[in-house]
Amino acid sequence: MLDINPGLIIWTIITFVLLVVVLGKFAWTPILQALQSREQEIADALKKADEAKKDAERMMAENKLAMDKASNETARLIAEGRTMAEQLKNDIVAKANESAKKMLDQAKEEIAREKEAAMAQLRTEVAELSITVAEKILDESLDGAKQKKMVDKVLQQLQKN
């Protein structure tokens, strides 16, 4: 069982060497190449996926930041608008009040002036009227002196009024 057969050893070596050469060319090289390229591809794909995930996370963080900023800005704008509107309202109301007061004053002044004018006119008209009345009464009987006295009296009374 343990006797060595040199011919068989040589056949084994020849067969093995040929097998290594043939398989090396037609089997191992392509199989290992295919394996390696696939492994490379998988590694690349995993790396890419990882990068994509990181990108997505970064973008999400950015988006969140932008959204926060935008909502802050909106709140600020709303608050600003509100204060401005308030101020504007106050201004308008104040101006309106002022102009109303002005108009009232003017109207009062006008009224006072009109009243004065009316009084003056009334006064002259009353004087003329009283003169006419007096003339009619005194036309016949009163002399000049009496007439004058009466006129003065009337005038005095008018002035009192």
Binding site: T15, L19, L23, A27, I31, Q33
Partner: peptide, 21 residues
């Protein structure tokens, strides 16, 4: 059987190599 093994290996493995590529 030495040669049979060698032939089996060459045939199957070169087929496999072509398919795997």
């Amino acid at each position: 059987f030495l040669w049979l093994a060698a032939v089996i290996l060459i045939v199957t493995l070169s087929l496999v190599a072509r398919r795997n590529q």
